[in-house]
Write a protein that binds this DNA or RNA. Sequence first.
DNA 1: AGATATTGCTTTGACATCTAACATTTCGAA
DNA 2: TTCGAAATGTTAGATGTCAAAGCAATATCT
Lengths: 201, 201
Amino acid sequence: MKSHHPQPLSRVSVNMARHHEVLISLRRIIRATDMYSRHLSKVAGLTAPQLLVMQSIAQRGEMAMGQIADEVSLSQATITTILDRLEKRELIVRLRGSTDKRRVYARLTADGMALLEKAPTPLQEEFIDRFAELDDWEQSLIVSSLQRVAAMMNAGDIDASPVLDLGAMDRAQPTVELSERRARQSEAAAPAPPYPEATRK
Amino acid sequence: MKSHHPQPLSRVSVNMARHHEVLISLRRIIRATDMYSRHLSKVAGLTAPQLLVMQSIAQRGEMAMGQIADEVSLSQATITTILDRLEKRELIVRLRGSTDKRRVYARLTADGMALLEKAPTPLQEEFIDRFAELDDWEQSLIVSSLQRVAAMMNAGDIDASPVLDLGAMDRAQPTVELSERRARQSEAAAPAPPYPEATRK
DNA sequence: AGATATTGCTTTGACATCTAACATTTCGAA
DNA sequence: TTCGAAATGTTAGATGTCAAAGCAATATCT
């Protein structure tokens, strides 16, 4: 901000407007997300969180409740209810851990995989298209901003990056760390452990 | 796409990672928002949407369901259920329009105003503080990005600004148009029409 | 070993949300 | 004027969401 104009009086009101803008935008984004989820439900038979969860499971072949929760940023309780519905529709099965019987693993059924194949992305196609059309720097800017907001809202969860790192935008790395960093119990992050320990419930 | 580095092969994967990052960040933001709402509920007795709605009403003195819905970006049905709860707790009252009997206006009660006085902001204090500490240009960048994302997700709702307008960041205007633009029935946007037509239900 | 703490998941209870179907009212046109 | 279309709200039904309380199993400490 070159700010040749100190804006002596409007300072406060401008700031108010600023974070109010943030609030408004967030509300809209949340709403759009919700509405797209319902749209997905109509055309694909899966809501966004259901799709997210299934993709997560598909990626690893088999996952425990807690792992899924971490990966999709939802509480375990929520994962339970989502899986309840998916299980009822026989899109996934639950398997009780054999060595550690507290754990419950979820696995896709054939039906589940089939449905997942045909399902759209969990993010509006429209958004993806438009996003893809942006210049690299714009995309980076947006991603950085969102991460920044997420970090600022997540209180204690910040572990660095106190400033928007503009220089990073040219390094154009896939930036997977954020997701990885989330995997608390880690499990050594094996690409896709075929079939861990687990037996039919 | 200027991209000094063509990144011949990683192009696709980078893009995937990019919008996937968006998805992850959004999930986190949504979650943080939700969790803060619950926190609010504990400490202030009002959830975020309840607070939003009440502030909205307080600002104008009296508002119809539809107006509120537009202002806080929620469906009318949602407003109805939120107001049901607020009314049950006697924080607001509903008034039927006298000239147009289809309309229903909401007004704060003394209790409602009192509670609203003591309530925190609908956005995490922490977020606001940290946000306020950022440089002007950073704030603008974030606000612009969020608005951009919201616009890209809202499909048909775009009415211009096909490119992130960096130049705008220097003009530092309060930027209220977005909220205004939403007010479809407009009502001529009177600052605070004392007490429109409405009688006790 | 035995008691206690911790971990992993499910249940319960309360909100928030949306769409679709209704009920009322108002408005416009024939 | 009368009738159908449009506008405004509410109801019904389905998900999603989380915190807190429960349960069961494992880990840890003495």
